[in-house]
């Protein structure tokens, strides 16, 4: 595939042990204005995307790809309870915001973008799905740049939220919004942080066949997504001969789209020139993988 340049990343990730924190002030601080009548899901999208822009003017022809396993759970649950417990019809804006791409709308509006937007869901490969769509559009020249993000929201009470996520009572849930600003790597390939590959495979055999085609340098690290079990990760690591694992999950609160945190964490901690191979799985034995390389920086670029 055509490598994708990672222009920047923006992240928000907080464990939630009681009521989630108020986000209005943070949103205003990041996007520079008070955005009215939006819920936490949209607030989180604005925080992550805004941090990704980091005060820069993102070109208007940048497309937005937002993914989530569950969408705007907060507003959807509120509408359910208003209707079936309180016997009230949904308020117009609440109803409109049950369509999760409302978060794409506010992100594009606040960052003044006027290109494509997509909201896509996948229970196990949310981030990887958005990345695949962005990669497809960038490769075909349909868009020149892409903002790729995931959002996970916590809706208290925490016991009920844990039930929605299917996690144990002693697991701490978290809220997250992870975003990447991507463009064509072009001539800056060696210097830039890049996504080298985004792949999905039907089964273990197909994954291993693809891995066999890769050139894995000595400074390649491997990490397993939250839905890949440890024995499978160990087996893959052994078969492809990668020495070291990259851990970005052990101190992290639980949310559905943890894969998306791997990129930012890796770029923040890894040595220049090193690569990360990230592999995730779903319960049906399908695999999703992406590969990231940390750039050497402009000053080290030769020829």
């Amino acid at each position: 595939m055509t490598p994708l340049r990672i222009i920047s990343s923006g992240n928000y990730c907080e464990p939630v042990t009681s009521d989630p924190p108020e986000l209005k002030a943070l949103v205003k601080d990041i996007v520079g204005t008070h955005v009215r009548r939006i819920g936490r899901f949209i607030q989180l999208a604005l925080i992550g995307a805004g941090r990704c822009a980091a005060g820069e003017r993102i070109p208007p022809d940048t497309a937005v790809y937002l993914a989530s396993a569950r969408g705007d759970l907060e507003v959807t649950l509120a509408v359910f309870d208003q209707l079936f417990r309180e016997s009230q019809a949904p308020k117009p804006l609440s109803f409109i915001n049950t369509v999760s791409n409302a978060a794409c709308f506010y992100t594009a509006q606040q960052l003044q973008l006027s290109s494509r937007s997509s909201f896509v869901c996948n229970r196990y490969f949310a981030f990887e799905s958005a990345l695949q769509l962005a990669q497809l559009d960038l490769e075909r020249g349909q868009v020149k740049a892409a903002l790729v993000g995931v959002v996970d929201v916590v809706v208290p009470p925490l016991d009920r939220h844990r039930a929605h996520l299917g996690i144990a009572a002693d697991v701490t849930p978290g809220e997250a919004s992870h975003w990447l600003w991507l463009g064509d790597a072009g001539a800056t390939f060696a210097a830039s942080d890049v996504i080298l590959a985004v792949e999905q495979h039907a089964d273990y055999g197909a994954l291993m066949k693809w891995l066999g085609t890769l050139t894995l340098t000595a400074d390649t690290l491997i990490s397993g997504g939250q839905f890949l079990n440890d024995p499978d990760l160990a087996s893959i690591q052994r078969e492809i001969g990668v020495r070291e694992c990259f851990d970005y999950r052990s101190a992290r609160a639980y949310y559905d789209s943890q894969s998306s945190a791997a990129v930012g964490d890796f770029l923040g901690r890894a040595a220049a020139g090193s690569q990360l191979l990230h592999i995730n799985a779903d319960p049906r034995g399908r695999y999703s993988a992406f590969m990231v390389r940390k750039g050497r920086g402009a000053e080290n670029e030769s020829g």
Partner: peptide
């Protein structure tokens, strides 16, 4: 699961 598709699946929620 029902049809044993093993390719990728995407669920678009753009109204």
């Amino acid at each position: 699961r029902k049809f044993d598709f093993r390719g990728p699946d995407f669920s678009f929620n753009t109204a």
